Simulated assay, not measured.
Amino acid sequence: MSNVALVSGGTRGIGAAVARALAAEGRRVAVTYHGDEAAAARFKQEAGIPVYRWDVADESACRAGIEQVEADLGPVSILVNNAGITRDGMFHRMTWDQWRAVLSTNLDSMFAMTRVVIEGMRERRFGRIVNISSINGQKGQVGQTNYSAAKAGVIGFTKALALENASRGVTVNAVCPGYVNTDMVAAVAEEVRAGIVAGIPLGRLGDVEEIAQAVCYLTSEKAAFCTGSVLTINGGQYIANG
């Protein structure tokens, strides 16, 4: 059975933590990145995990990139769709480019990445797909109609794909992180960050490793009976129904 895991947006933040955790469990891991060459080089040197550059919103780039990963490492049996961007702004001022950029990278990528690997997983009767959504895809957020719409779409995509592929041994689940201690959150003004933490019942930001361990569980044999699930990890900031 193939033991290859592919993590999109895997050189920083949650993606990097997921890649490291999967590698620590003995997976053969590859990660993608798009823009930050310095971060990718640093991650590759520190983690010893191969990195591949392509745009996850580009269907042909995803196909070519994944074909190269499989030629190098073997068939992908674990896919973690983590890549995402924000282009925040109030909707009445939001541009079409802001809308399309976020929907393309955060939602169109679900099709572009998953479509390439799903047939192989079905044929081998084994696959683990984990899609990273967000607390704001569950509850919405001011200034993020584009991001919230995309991340809500990830949840619907997850549930439908899980139903289609359960009989073929392929599980599909989503993780919805709340506010996590990443570079993006660290860049927020201190007073804003303090306000965020004040709204989290556990009284702190999440750690990337906490999200990574949840992904590790969902990709393991121990989670074979778990599909179509949405795992909320947000310190109690938002408690979803079901």
Rank of each mutant, 00 (worst) to 15 (best):
179 Y>I: 04
80 V>Q: 02
198 A>T: 00
145 T>V: 15
143 G>C: 04
144 Q>M: 10
178 G>C: 09
72 D>M: 03
88 D>I: 09
84 G>K: 02
54 W>N: 06
20 R>S: 13
35 G>F: 05
119 E>K: 15
48 G>L: 07
35 G>E: 13
78 I>F: 01
113 M>N: 04
88 D>A: 07
49 I>N: 05
125 R>V: 04
107 L>S: 11
150 A>R: 10
34 H>Y: 15
2 S>V: 02
9 G>S: 04
178 G>R: 03
152 A>H: 12
227 T>Y: 13
60 S>C: 05
150 A>H: 07
130 V>T: 13
26 G>E: 06
28 R>Q: 14
113 M>L: 15
232 T>V: 14
123 E>T: 14
105 T>K: 14
172 V>H: 11
93 R>Q: 11
47 A>Q: 02
93 R>N: 08
24 A>I: 00
120 G>R: 09
29 V>H: 07
96 W>T: 15
163 L>C: 14
240 A>T: 04
57 A>K: 10
96 W>R: 15
147 Y>P: 09
25 E>N: 02
111 F>T: 12
147 Y>Q: 08
99 W>N: 11
85 I>L: 11
226 C>Y: 02
69 V>L: 05
207 D>R: 15
68 Q>L: 13
225 F>K: 01
194 A>W: 03
123 E>V: 14
235 G>M: 05
42 R>Q: 13
124 R>F: 00
16 A>W: 02
234 N>H: 09
35 G>I: 03
119 E>D: 15
